[in-house]
Design a binder for these strands. Structure first.
Lengths: 259, 259
DNA sequence: CCAGCCTAAGTGTGATCACAGATCACGGCA
DNA sequence: TGCCGTGATCTGTGATCACACTTAGGCTGG
């Protein structure tokens, strides 16, 4: 019954576009597009499928071990098999998906060893990003970070916390910090790391939401924001490292990771 | 005359395999393959094309700004257009290639700003890898590192240095160190970084080989190896950072980078 | 009733075709 | 002589088909 695989909410009926330009159907009239002066962004169907799957992975919409099918993905998103192929190929290259010797595509099952390794790399890389951010952070970036921090705090302190929004706020907060470092290539690296830990992280958080209520993450975030505000690079690095480490320690206690 | 694009030596006549398994031709008899007990590695044509292009980029076989064509790559490697597509798509995702709004694929032209950013990220990430290696390095890894160091030194001190082999020895030395850190995901990240700076680095080195003779790199390598041998993490980090920084400084002096 | 084969559906991979857009050289007009 | 329009060609992208292979389910023989 793997028919259920992609019936999760986010991927449903996205209908990227109605068979692109090849469908022969009237394109509903091409308007002049008043904001055409923007740089002509590349938006191929393959990229859109890639983004859809990527968001799904980071947000935990796909569980570790879950199997995928090119044809299913394509059909679910209303495209042909080709864009799905390209998207899956790229994700496999990122190690966000894996294709077994049986030719089956699935979300990788992270072992405990791999998880610890990724955590160490994350602490190093994301810690560096936080330290850089502390030195390069301007008032605008700091305000955005504070906003995301407030959104996260208000969400986890609510009487009925919405885990989905809390995790998204947490993610936005982290990447706002990384963006403040002013190193785009670092952000790409970190996104690749999140792509791999996203499934296990979100899955475990979702299965035991009480961890958020303990307020541990909030404390780390508070220290992080304070360090950023004062330009304390090492303080920011330590706060972020502690945030990652405590989160990872919690994940390990759930015991869901493979040996 | 972009027909010349892929006529560089490395990519010539590689002939991955004669049309794979779909060609009706006899497969020259499938032998039992005595080493079949190895894990069933995934070796698709797309992956092989990807590896070929990747090696070419890291080795400097493709110059910044050089244009590529899916059909040319495919024909040059003796495959169809599909594997070339997959390979190029993955490289574009890695930002090792870029596709212009005109739909033209080329090796990105790194700006000075981007180069400096990549250098900073490299110093952080590769420096961390070196520090980890200093703590995790065993006698076997250390011996391999020494071998590569000796190979590099003997090559640059030769009366007629072979730049190709010198650069390869340098690369092998670096990645032997990173491998000693025991963090596979870190290696993947660093490979992605080298994929981007490879073209400019190799091109400039090739255009002015005298830099190698100055012995600066050798000194950094010696300090690095010494630090690794004594388990001096910070010393290894500093040596590697100095190596990268001096190399980057030299590249900047050539003035070949775009504004 | 259970074990074994064996067919049929489903998988990713590769090849081929179709299409929209960009580039560039050539030729005709002013 | 200079410039603009125009068509052939080449580009990546998407769709479709073909194939080798795996796997799961239904049948048959014991």
């Amino acid at each position: 019954m793997q028919r259920r695989d992609l019936q999760r909410r986010d991927l449903q009926r996205r209908d990227l576009q109605k068979h692109g330009r090849h469908g022969g159907g009237a394109d509903a009239g091409d308007r002049p597009d008043p904001e055409a002066l923007a740089p002509p962004e590349r938006i191929t169907l393959g990229t859109q499928v890639y983004d859809a799957l990527r968001d799904l992975l980071i947000a935990g919409g796909l569980a570790p071990g879950e199997r995928l099918s090119l044809r299913t993905v394509a059909e679910r998103l209303g495209t042909s098999m080709m864009p799905a192929r390209e998207a899956v190929s790229r994700l496999v290259a990122d190690e966000a998906l894996e294709v077994l010797p049986n030719r089956a595509v699935r979300v990788p099952v992270i072992t405990l060893q791999t998880f610890r390794e990724l955590t160490r790399v994350r602490i190093a890389v994301e810690g560096f990003a936080a330290a850089e951010a502390a030195q390069a952070c301007g008032p605008g970036e700091l305000a955005a970070i504070r906003d995301h921090d407030a959104a996260f705090r208000s969400e986890v302190q609510a009487t009925a916390p919405d885990l989905e929004r809390a995790m998204r706020a947490n993610r936005d907060l982290h990447f706002a910090v990384y963006a403040a470092a002013g190193l785009p290539s670092l952000i790409a690296i970190i996104e690749g790391l999140w792509l791999r830990i996203g499934p296990v992280l979100n899955l475990d958080m979702r299965s035991s939401p009480r961890r958020l209520a303990e307020g541990e993450a909030e404390a780390h975030h508070a220290r992080l924001v304070a360090a950023l505000a004062t330009g304390d690079a090492e303080g920011a690095r330590a706060a972020l490292a502690a945030d990652i480490a405590s989160s990872a320690a919690f994940i390990e206690t759930t015991g869901r990771l493979a040996s």
